[in-house]
Computed example of a mutant assay.
Amino acid sequence: MIVDTHLHLIDKTALRYPWLAGVPALDHDFSQEEYAAQARRAGIEAALFMEVDVDAADIEAELAYVKGLAKAPGSLLRGAIVACRPEEPGFAAWLEKVQANPFAKGFRRVLHVVPDDVSERPLFRENIRRIAGTGLTFDLCVLPGQMRQAFALVDSAPDVQFVLDHCGVPDIKGNAEHPWKEQIAEMAKRPNVAGKISGVVAYADPATWTVETLQPYVGHTIGSFGWDRVVWGSDWPVCTLGGGLLDWVAATHALLAGASDEERTKLLSGNAKRLWRL
């Protein structure tokens, strides 16, 4: 069975998503029911909602909305990674609210939609360090060209548990293994970072990718972090840009064909259950 650590849900009647206007293929609702129908077929037993970069004014509403969805009979939702703005003074108060909400499991601030220096600002780093000791994680969503800043942020907060999204967002379509490959190996040297094997089909050519296309990227990420520091995520519905949920799950099983039962269990569910206390 699988724990999906990276599920997006979109409801344009409830929340505002300014960035969706630039991605027509995703600019509509993606519901819990639509996801669950596919997820159950794929053997997914639980999921963590991942914030969807809503309008800043809707950040608190997004958490309340998803917590409400989780109350539906048979919901797969077990928690949420919530949005935040560590570059702003209000982060400390938001941290207190999130820490008091057991449904919240961590934070994410998408860093490739802001200037590269945002994560280098003193207030940003001070606020990230506040997460230490709370049991909450921080997802790193960065492009390969921002890895220098990501290294510095992780090093500035050694007591915070970070999770690197999407194998570091490699350019699979462009066959760009370098310097991505070296960057992943360098990031994995930091014991407070886990690697998320999530939705990389979105970065491959949707018409031509195969398991062999993905293997260098997924294999290198797992090999760098090791089986005790990797988790799996669908990145639904973004993964639909490269095929879809069932394609990605099937590819994952093929990529893990040479792994032991213990190794597969760690990646697909065990590490996530431990990391987020599911």
Rank of each mutant, 00 (worst) to 15 (best):
W19V: 05
T13A: 14
L9Y: 07
V23Q: 11
E45I: 10
E45R: 14
L9N: 08
E34M: 13
A39D: 09
H28C: 11
L7E: 10
L26M: 13
F30L: 07
L15N: 00
H8D: 09
F30A: 05
A36F: 04
P18A: 04
G43I: 03
K12A: 02
A46K: 03
D27S: 14
F30Y: 14
I44K: 02
F30T: 02
L7F: 09
R41P: 04
W19S: 07
P18W: 05
L15I: 00
D11W: 00
D4W: 06
H8S: 10
V3H: 12
A39M: 08
G43W: 04
D29Q: 00
D29L: 00
A37Q: 14
S31N: 05
L26Q: 03
H8M: 09
E45F: 01
R41K: 13
R41T: 10
H28K: 15
Q38D: 15
D29C: 00
Q32V: 12
M1T: 13
D4C: 10
I44R: 02
T13H: 08
Q32S: 14
A25K: 13
I10Y: 10
A37P: 05
H8Y: 10
T5I: 07
R41A: 13
P18N: 07
Y17D: 03
T13S: 15
K12R: 15
P18G: 06
L9R: 06
Y35C: 12
L15M: 01
P24W: 01
A25F: 02
D11E: 06
G22A: 15
A42T: 09
A25Y: 02
V3F: 15
Y35S: 11
P24Q: 01
A42L: 09
H8W: 06
P24I: 01
L20N: 09
R40N: 05
K12L: 07
A46N: 01
A36S: 15
D4S: 11
L26V: 03
T5G: 08
A39L: 06
L26S: 02
P18Y: 06
H8I: 04
L15F: 00
A37K: 13
T5H: 03
Y17N: 05
G22P: 06
E33S: 14
I10P: 04
E34K: 11
Q32F: 06
L26W: 02
W19Q: 06
L9P: 05
Y35F: 15
L7P: 09
P24A: 01
V23P: 03
A46Y: 00
G43S: 08
A36K: 11
A21I: 06
D29S: 00
D29R: 00
A25D: 14
A42C: 15
Y35E: 12
I2H: 14
R40L: 13
L20V: 04
K12G: 01
Q38C: 12
T13D: 15
F30M: 06
F30N: 04
S31G: 13
Q38E: 15
E33V: 12
H6P: 07
E45W: 00
L9E: 07
R16V: 12
